[in-house]
Amino acid sequence: MRYLSIYRPESGVEGGTPDPEHMAAMGRLIEEWSAKGKLISTEPLTPRDRCARVRLDGDGQFAVSDETVRAGGFAFLNAESKDEAIELCKAFLKVAGPGTCEIRQVLEFAPQPA
């Protein structure tokens, strides 16, 4: 099963430049999970001061807001269960530092016959 993990660093942590030791530890984790087939892809996200949220208001007009969610990055994980995805995120947080990971299973639908 595939899971999306969105990492939200604690307040004040977002947007900083990690030190070389931290980057090396993260690189080792990415290499290990990639080799085991647990990591599909991962990328950092820009700080929320450079983001926007767009929504359709009730009157059909689009509204743009600066009320974005703080997020440090995302990862698509390959896990056998939600429990395994949780354990992967716990291991990630030990390397990434203070924050939370929101985990959502990516729904997979069987193709419909033509």
Rank of each mutant, 00 (worst) to 15 (best):
42 T>I: 04
35 A>E: 03
91 A>D: 08
100 T>K: 10
112 Q>V: 15
86 I>T: 13
51 C>E: 05
38 K>M: 10
95 V>Y: 10
34 S>E: 06
101 C>L: 07
104 R>K: 05
20 P>I: 03
24 A>Y: 03
87 E>N: 00
39 L>H: 07
61 Q>W: 08
44 P>A: 09
7 Y>L: 00
96 A>L: 11
83 D>Q: 05
106 V>S: 10
96 A>Y: 08
85 A>M: 05
59 D>W: 09
53 R>V: 15
16 G>F: 11
32 E>R: 10
1 M>C: 03
103 I>H: 02
55 R>M: 15
16 G>T: 12
64 V>L: 11
105 Q>P: 07
34 S>Y: 09
77 L>W: 00
51 C>D: 13
73 G>Q: 00
49 D>Y: 07
94 K>Y: 04
49 D>L: 02
38 K>R: 11
40 I>N: 02
109 F>S: 13
73 G>R: 00
59 D>K: 08
53 R>E: 14
86 I>G: 04
33 W>Q: 03
49 D>C: 06
58 G>S: 14
94 K>Q: 08
82 K>N: 15
63 A>S: 13
54 V>A: 14
95 V>L: 15
25 A>F: 09
75 A>I: 01
41 S>V: 06
59 D>G: 07
105 Q>V: 12
65 S>W: 10
97 G>C: 08
30 I>D: 12
3 Y>M: 07
29 L>M: 14
41 S>E: 00
2 R>Q: 14
11 S>Q: 12
3 Y>T: 06
37 G>Q: 05
87 E>A: 01
28 R>N: 15
98 P>K: 12
39 L>M: 09
1 M>G: 12
27 G>A: 01
22 H>F: 09
98 P>M: 08
70 R>W: 12
59 D>Y: 11
67 E>L: 11
110 A>K: 13
75 A>K: 00
22 H>A: 06
56 L>Y: 12
40 I>G: 09
112 Q>A: 15
90 K>T: 08
7 Y>F: 00
63 A>T: 10
66 D>K: 14
